[in-house]
Amino acid sequence: MNRILAIASFIMMIATGAHATTVNLMSGGDLHILGSKGTFNVDGVSGTVHAGSYAHNPRISQFHHGIGVRTSHDDTGNLDGLWDEWLTFTLHKTVRLISVTFAHVDTTDDWDVYVGHTRVANDSPSNPYDFGNVIASAFTILADGHKCKLYIFCKSDDNFVIKKFEFEHTPAPVPLPAPGLLLIGGLAGFGFMRRRKQQVG
């Protein structure tokens, strides 16, 4: 019976046509930037990216290896934790989030990950970070790592960019064509007859 269910699930997966989509964020990629906001439209899904920080005038910076945040208090353009910097991604529809990949990463870098308004990872070093196929329409990456001496002289531990992220469409189930329904019905009937035969024997 388990084999029959597995085959049926595979047929349903083919019918829905789910596939992964990658949004490339580096220069020349899928993101178009104007100040603190970026927009993208990939594989029929549009969305925005917003820059945020506790420092003044946060805006998106873009490099050949990814995007970060630039403020009036720093000039690296990467996501760093000195003033807490973050990028929020909002899609126009609900999708299955798969992963987000970082670049310009060293051993001191880590990131907080929010899905919607819920933090799902605190100081994660995972690259790429796996969302675990969560269903959502927004996520945020936050850099907040820094160290201070005498509460005055502070230095950021985080200094990275976001290279890309992946998601999967979650379309409404497509009705199976007649041959697919007949196949599932036939497999179920075969399984029933096999169990009955074993009981009789």
Results as ranks from 00 to 15, higher is better:
Met1Gln: 11
Ile4Cys: 11
Ile4Phe: 07
Ser9Asp: 09
Phe10Gly: 14
Met13Tyr: 08
Met13Val: 10
Ile14His: 00
Ala18Glu: 15
Ala20Asn: 12
Thr21Met: 04
Val23Gln: 07
Met26Tyr: 08
Ser27His: 03
Gly28Ser: 11
Gly28Pro: 14
His32Ile: 12
His32Ala: 13
Leu34Ser: 14
Leu34Glu: 14
Gly38Met: 08
Asp43Trp: 08
Gly44Met: 00
Ser46Trp: 10
Gly47Tyr: 06
Val49Asp: 05
Pro58Trp: 03
Ile60Lys: 02
Ser61Tyr: 09
Ser61Val: 08
Ser61Trp: 07
Ser61Leu: 00
Gln62Tyr: 07
Phe63Pro: 00
Phe63Ala: 10
His65Gln: 13
Gly66Glu: 01
Gly66Asp: 05
Ile67Gly: 07
Ile67Phe: 08
Val69Tyr: 06
Val69Gln: 06
Arg70Asp: 05
Arg70Lys: 15
Ser72Gly: 10
His73Ile: 11
Gly77Asp: 02
Gly77Ser: 02
Gly77Cys: 08
Asp80Ala: 02
Gly81His: 09
Leu82Tyr: 03
Trp83Arg: 07
Trp83Thr: 09
Trp83Glu: 06
Trp86Thr: 15
Thr88Gln: 10
Phe89Val: 12
Phe89Ser: 01
Leu91Ile: 02
His92Ser: 14
Ile98Gly: 01
Val100Leu: 07
Asp106Pro: 01
Asp106Trp: 00
Thr107Gly: 06
Thr108Val: 00
Asp109Pro: 08
Asp110Cys: 11
Trp111Tyr: 13
Asp112Gln: 01
Asp112Arg: 07
Asp112Glu: 01
Val113Gly: 02
Gly116Ile: 05
Thr118Ile: 01
Val120Ala: 09
Val120Glu: 02
Ala121Ile: 04
Ala121Ser: 10
Asn122Glu: 14
Ser124Glu: 01
Pro128Ala: 01
Phe131Ala: 00
Phe131Tyr: 02
Gly132Thr: 04
Asn133Glu: 14
Phe139Leu: 03
Phe139Thr: 04
Phe139Arg: 00
Ile141Ser: 04
Leu142Ala: 06
Asp144Trp: 05
Gly145Leu: 10
Gly145Lys: 04
Lys149His: 13
Ile152Trp: 08
Ile152Glu: 11
Phe153Ile: 13
Phe153Gly: 00
Phe153Cys: 03
Lys155Ile: 14
Ser156Ala: 15
Ser156Lys: 09
Ser156Tyr: 03
Asp157Asn: 15
Phe160Ala: 04
Ile162Ala: 04
Phe165Thr: 03
Phe165Cys: 04
Phe167Glu: 05
Phe167Ser: 02
Glu168Thr: 06
Thr170Pro: 00
Thr170His: 04
Ala172His: 10
Pro175Lys: 10
Pro175Asn: 03
Leu176Thr: 11
Gly180His: 05
Leu181Trp: 09
Leu181Lys: 15
Leu183Val: 13
Ile184Thr: 14
Gly186Ile: 01
Gly186Tyr: 07
Ala188His: 02
Ala188Trp: 08
Ala188Leu: 15
Arg194Met: 12
Arg196Gln: 15
Lys197Trp: 12
Gln198His: 10
Gln198Glu: 13
Gln199His: 10
